[in-house]
């Protein structure tokens, strides 16, 4: 009926492997050629329970991975599953990041590390130099995202200094921007952080792309739940990956999002 998808029904796939990453964080690998671009998302269905959107953290020709944190009833159920169990997926959905230039910076806050890890892999394949800044609250919830390439240097930060630099990702970003000519910044994480990243990109006159997470129900652009004020575009279709020109037209950016009912929730 629409684009590549004959229908939006879930495809049933097998869990190939589950890797422990940190406290309450695991990467689930699924046997399926998702054919996603970095920054796109998929929807994971636990039959008879619920369905939620997730970013892609790894992909090759016959499998893909999603790095997921246990945060509520849905992920509680997901974390009970074992290798060989089956789940449903639909997607990929949404817009993706566009790789630009030869020297880029990635700024990940918390779970934002997942899609940016996939983007780092793609950038490395293209020979792009990657400055990967990744911040977590503390060492216990920090995922190792070291890459085997010399082209990618990961800068870890923690709020409490238990691993890497003590402080915020944006401080490290500023330091890099002062030293290097960066072609584009890519950021995924808490909106307060991304807002600061956008400000820094303006200050240093660098392109910036980000991923804006909103409550997604259908994933294919019809329910209206993920639409942002005031321009009225859908984050499942015209997003989640947008450039800073577009984010500046989104009046709610950094201020509030909406929940399952449509009620505003301030950050």
């Amino acid at each position: 009926m629409c684009d590549d998808h004959k229908t939006e029904q879930p495809t049933i796939v097998e869990i190939l492997n589950i890797k422990d990453e940190a406290k309450d964080i695991k990467t689930f690998y699924f046997k399926y050629n998702l054919d996603a671009k970095p920054g796109q998302f998929f929807i994971l269905w636990l039959p008879g329970i619920n369905e939620k959107p997730f970013g892609v953290s790894y992909q090759d020709e016959d499998k893909f991975g999603a790095t997921i944190c246990k945060v509520g009833p849905f992920t509680d159920e997901l974390f009970k599953l074992k290798k060989g169990d089956k789940i449903g997926i639909r997607g990929p959905y949404g817009t993706s990041f566009e790789l630009k230039g030869k020297n880029i910076a990635l700024v990940a806050g918390g779970y934002g590390v997942a899609p940016l890890s996939f983007l780092a892999d793609e950038a490395i394949k293209k020979g792009i130099i990657v400055h990967f800044i990744y911040g977590a609250k503390t060492k216990k919830v920090l995922v190792n995202c070291d890459k085997k390439s010399k082209k990618c240097k990961v800068h870890y930060t923690t709020d409490d200094g238990t691993y890497g630099l003590k402080g915020f990702t944006t401080e490290k970003l500023k330091e890099i921007l002062e030293k290097e000519k960066i072609d584009c910044i890519y950021t995924v994480g808490p909106e307060v952080m991304m807002k600061r990243v956008v400000e820094l990109s303006d200050e240093f006159k660098v392109d910036c792309q980000l991923s804006l997470e909103r409550y997604i129900k259908c994933g294919f652009g019809i329910c209206g739940q993920c639409v942002v004020d005031d321009i009225g575009i859908r984050m499942c279709k015209e997003g989640p990956c947008i450039d800073k020109k577009l984010v500046k037209k989104i009046s709610e950016f950094g201020k509030y999002k909406r929940d399952a009912s449509g009620k505003k929730v301030e950050f």
Binding site: M1, P10, W45, R258, A260
Partner: peptide
């Protein structure tokens, strides 16, 4: 409203049970 999936499709149309979610 209802848990997801709230909307699905098949070759001839769409089926939904969003469950009257509203603020």
């Amino acid at each position: 409203g209802h848990p997801c999936p709230v909307i699905t499709t098949w070759e001839a149309g769409m089926m939904n049970a969003v469950g009257l979610s509203n603020a």
